[in-house]
Design a protein around this nucleic acid. Structure first.
Length: 722
DNA sequence: GTGGCCTCTCTTTTT
DNA sequence: GAGAGGCCAC
């Protein structure tokens, strides 16, 4: 057997990881150290050398994109179809298990996956039922509470009531009521998928044993992003029967705020004491200086597992630091730089602009538009999150499963058919009192003649539509069914008549959905295709299928940049308050997470990194004078070259003042000016210094001349003290 | 059901 | 200061 294609392209550490005996393995993989490659090659090794059949492998990732990419690469490497291997996200795999074992999991066969939008609706409904004041008890917060508990593996009945703690007690009640409503309507939210499949292991040992025999090895990507319940799920499944390979980087853990536990990496050592540990520290991505900067920044974090990236490559160009006058200047500078770079024969798509928060993208986009540079913004509204799509899916969900209350609430009055808040409330009341689904409640009310007038007609025709579609579903293809649902429900006309281009765009999206249905391939023949499509729509929000063919600059948040790399990277808005974000300054833990985010950002760059910040920035409607980010100050001086426009005034002084963290309205000392001082201007004559803003070459002072106050840029309008 | 007005907030986001 | 979400009036 020739294993050279599997091990030849690897360095020593990578090879050690790939060829480790079929036992527990922890791979600490630094940024750009070939983590995915190791995972893929290890799968190949296990199949070829340890003779594990494809069906014996389970590979778990966090995003559908990562799962697809892995499948792709293994098929490429082994020139075979990955059929039989289980690839998927934690949620996807949990869902698959629950579908197969719905009875053991205590679910109805037709259970539906509830996405966060629908979840919020359900939470609101429960809270209204409980007559909680929405301003005092924000539904979003309750939703967050429920998800956080589920992420920790806790059911409402596991959580201790605390007599004095009104907050927890109230939210607990919401949790409890929400849960029973979901159970009754056959709805399973994201957290519930994980929690339930964990319970499935615990309550059905024979099932667990079955899967433990089936899986001969489990591989987990981005292990630092696992939360408590995910870890528990893995731990029970693997225990001491199924070997685990987990790959992660504690320095790239940036999702603590949504429940990820970096500690799981340390815990792994304890729970699996015989696990082998391999560190991948050689970086193949970035230049020497970029790596040096990244190492220096991350070294300021405490309690790391310890890893220091190194590279064979040259130092490369120094990192540029541009101090912009304001956010406009920053955006223009970046757009100019990209123009230059493209003029030198580079591709736009090889450059990326990264920022901490989405709000920053607008100014950047405007500057790119002005210069006619095509760009693509990542992470916008996803296809299945669009209203019109969710409405169409709402109808289909009801066709599939009438007791899906979330879908019922969503579309019963869309398009409007006279079923207002009052009628809906009657339905909810009846449903609650008699433990019925909204669908059943509607039937009862109609039979009893308890609804009158427009509401009666509307509700009647709504039910009629669903019934007719259900009939049609028996014989029609998915595509035909969807087409009819969109037409017959009135959604097409309703969205089409929305004013402006919006209406047209919505209809186009609906057509796109019909196309997607036509192309949809059923993965599991045994499954009802409609059921499968609906679940997929909830679990895979549909990678924004933007035209990737056009050569465009990539704009995204630092979070979405994880896992990607670009020859040229701009990191915009490196200012205190923005990055690190002001909301993470209080807790040291949050600040460390921000620092890891900085580490992620820096290590995205292959050849050239440009940091920019604005001395003055409009935020929340106010002019803010933020100091240079501490993360930039943590980079050794010899890695950085400060870029200034010409006519520079005293660069060191500017940097010093930035480092001191403050820009005052007092002009810099080296200008020889002070507030209140008399100065002479060659053209305007004598005046008094009233105010100062900015620093460095952008320093502007306000001077009161005889004919009024003027703002002057010091660099261009030298003032003489007099 | 829509439009206008008021208030409130103001990260990061996958499933 | 902008955008979202809630509320009220027509």
């Amino acid at each position: 057997m020739d294993v050279s294609p599997i091990i030849d392209p690897l360095n020593d550490a990578q090879r050690e990881a790939v060829t480790a005996p079929n036992g527990h393995l922890l791979v600490l993989a630094g940024a750009g150290s070939g983590k995915t490659r190791v995972l893929v090659h290890r799968m190949a090794w296990l199949m070829q050398v340890d003779q594990i059949p494809p069906t014996g492998l389970l590979a778990v990732t966090f995003t559908n994109k990562a799962a697809r990419e892995m499948r792709h690469r293994i098929e490429d490497l082994l020139k075979l179809e990955g059929r039989g291997m289980w690839f998927g996200t934690f949620h996807g795999i949990a869902h698959r298990l629950l579908r197969s074992h719905w009875q053991d999991a205590g679910l109805p066969e037709n259970f539906q996956v509830l996405d966060s939008d629908d979840q919020l609706r359900m939470v609101k409904r429960v809270m209204r039922e409980m007559q909680l004041d929405e301003s005092r008890w924000p539904p979003k917060q309750a939703q967050w509470f429920i998800n956080a508990q589920k992420d920790e593996g806790l059911r409402a009945e596991h959580i201790q009531q605390n007599p004095g703690d009104l907050y927890t007690n109230t939210l607990l009640k919401v949790y409890q009521r929400y849960q029973s409503l979901c159970q009754q309507s056959g709805l399973v939210d994201f957290g519930e998928l994980l929690l339930r499949s964990h319970e499935l292991w615990l309550h059905r040992p024979e099932l667990l044993a079955h899967y433990q025999r089936r899986f001969r090895h489990i591989l987990v990507d981005e292990f630092q992003d696992t939360n408590t319940i995910q870890y528990a799920w893995l731990q029970v499944l693997a225990s001491n029967r199924v070997p685990l390979t987990v790959v992660g980087d504690d320095d790239q853990s940036i999702y603590g705020w949504r429940g990820a536990k970096v500690e799981n990496i340390q815990q792994f050592n304890t729970d699996f004491p015989n696990a082998r540990i391999v560190r991948l520290e050689q970086n193949y991505r970035s230049t020497g200086l970029i790596l040096k900067a990244a190492n220096a920044v991350i070294a300021n974090n405490q309690g790391r597992l310890g890893k220091e990236l190194w590279t064979d490559s040259q130092d490369g160009e120094p990192i540029s630091l541009y101090a912009a006058f304001n956010e406009q200047d920053e955006a223009n500078y970046i757009a100019d730089s990209i123009s230059d770079w493209v003029r030198q024969g580079n591709l736009r798509r090889e450059s990326a602009i990264l920022y901490r928060s989405n709000a920053q993208s607008r100014v950047l986009e405007e500057a790119l538009v002005r210069q006619g540079i095509p760009y693509r913004v990542y992470g916008g509204l996803r296809f299945y999150d669009r209203q019109e799509i969710r409405n169409a899916l709402g109808y289909l969900r009801l066709v599939h499963y009438r007791h899906d209350d979330a879908a019922f609430e969503r579309v019963v009055n869309i398009p409007p058919r006279g079923i207002g808040a009052k009628s809906l409330q009657d339905l909810r009341d009846l449903a609650r009192d008699q433990s019925l689904s909204l669908w059943q409640a509607a039937e009862r009310l109609l039979e009893a003649g308890a609804v009158k007038g427009r509401a009666r007609t509307g509700l009647g025709s709504f039910i009629e539509i669903i019934l007719e579609l259900s009939e049609r579903a028996q014989s029609a293809t998915l595509k035909e069914l969807t087409e009819q649902a969109i037409r017959q429900s009135g959604l097409r006309d309703y969205h089409g008549s929305e004013k402006g281009e919006k209406g047209q765009a919505r209809v186009e999206n609906l057509d796109e959905l019909i196309n997607a249905m036509a192309e949809y391939e059923v993965e599991d023949e045994a499954q009802d295709p409609l059921a499968e499509f609906i679940a997929q729509a909830a679990l895979d929000a549909g990678e924004s299928q933007a035209d990737e063919h056009e050569d465009s600059v990539q704009l995204m948040t630092l979070h979405s940049a994880k896992g990607l790399e670009f020859p040229l990277v701009f990191l915009a808005g490196t200012e205190e308050g923005l990055f690190p974000h002001s909301m993470s300054l209080e807790e040291p833990g949050r600040l460390e997470e921000e620092r890891r985010l900085a580490y992620v950002g820096i290590t995205r760059a292959m050849k050239k990194l440009v940091l920019t910040y604005a001395e003055s920035r409009r935020m929340y409607g106010q002019e803010k004078f933020n100091a240079l980010s501490r993360f930039v100050r943590e980079i050794p001086g010899d890695c950085i070259q400060e870029v200034r426009l010409r006519n520079t005034v005293s660069r060191p002084a500017m940097v010093q003042r930035a480092n001191e963290g403050l820009f005052s309205s007092q002009p810099p000392a080296e200008t020889g000016l002070q507030l209140g001082q008399r100065v002479r201007h060659p053209k305007f004559g004598e005046g008094i210094v009233m105010n100062c803003e900015g620093s460095g070459h952008h320093t502007r002072v306000q001077v009161n001349f005889d004919d009024g106050a003027k703002w002057l840029v010091l660099a261009y309008a030298p003032l003489e003290p007099c």
